[in-house]
């Protein structure tokens, strides 16, 4: 009964979130509706707070969870809606960090820290690197190339993008809310054991060995592909053997 109600809550919050993202998405030639965006964001986050309150009841960790989750959701909204890619990447880091904190909070330390190392430490550095290479920090709107440089600032199909994203999210949210969480305490207690990193390692190497290997092979293939694409050698003037042979012609002098 309660869960049925919560599903509607989740859909409602999701709907507001969708509207919020839609109005927040930067689109060329559309007036900026900042006030509406902020209002909707506040409504969405408030709805989330109420949802968490219903969902978590009186459990001890509801404050920490709510704060981290709101940080994550708010950051995620800004990742999508921020007009400047570098800031989007930075908000993504915020999302990764708050998610990692949530994961650590439920006892999966290894997973959380691995998330930080892999995402925040490596992948997002590469993102920032690429974004920085592709555009300088000056406002491109002032230049005459504004419309050309706008390709990664402006949303092409905001309606469809928001719709697709939020249908996916509503599905996931409904499944999470509908699940019977009565055995959660046992599961989390089992996960909170002292050596859960060890257990995780054992599991990865026995039960999920094939998945791990497949993921590795996939990455390997991707890497080889990237090298193959990048290896095309552009001929350079210094590569030609035109230059006179050095040394052994005439007198050769020892430099020291």
């Amino acid at each position: 009964m309660l869960s049925q109600q919560l599903v509607y809550w989740a859909y409602g919050v999701g709907g507001f979130g969708a509207l919020c993202v839609y109005f927040g998405l930067p689109k060329e030639g559309r007036p900026e509706r900042r006030g509406l965006f902020v209002l909707l964001l506040a409504v969405t986050l408030g709805g989330l707070v109420l949802l968490f309150d219903r969902l978590l009841g009186e459990s001890a960790n509801r404050f920490v969870f709510s704060i981290l989750a709101l940080l994550g959701v708010g950051g995620a909204v800004r990742v999508v809606t921020h007009p400047r890619p570098v800031y989007s990447a930075l908000y993504f880091i915020l999302v990764v960090l708050s998610t990692a904190a949530l994961i650590i909070y439920v006892g999966a330390e290894f997973l959380g820290v691995a998330l930080v190392i892999v995402y925040a430490g490596a992948i997002l550095v590469t993102y920032v690197f690429v974004i920085m290479l592709s555009q300088q920090s000056t406002e491109a709107t002032e230049s005459r190339f504004a419309s050309v440089l706008d390709y990664d600032r402006s949303a092409r199909e905001p309606v469809w993008a928001v719709l697709a994203g939020f249908i996916l999210m509503a599905t996931v949210a409904a499944i999470i809310v509908k699940r019977d969480w009565s055995d959660w305490d046992e599961v989390s207690a089992a996960a909170m054991t002292e050596k859960n990193t060890l257990e995780l390692g054992k599991m990865l190497m026995t039960e999920f060995a094939i998945s791990v290997e497949l993921a590795g092979v996939l990455l390997m293939v991707a890497m080889i592909g990237a090298i193959a694409v990048a290896k095309k050698r552009i001929p350079h003037a210094s590569d030609a053997v035109e230059s006179p042979p050095r040394g052994e012609v005439g007198k050769t002098v020892d430099p020291f």
């Binding site: 050095r246 040394g247 052994e248 012609v249 005439g250 007198k251 050769t252 002098v253 020892d254 430099p255 020291f256």
Partner: peptide, 12 residues
């Protein structure tokens, strides 16, 4: 002539 040219090698 070629013999006047002194090529200075980098040391190995």
């Amino acid at each position: 002539t070629e013999t006047d040219v002194v090529y200075v090698d980098q040391p190995e």
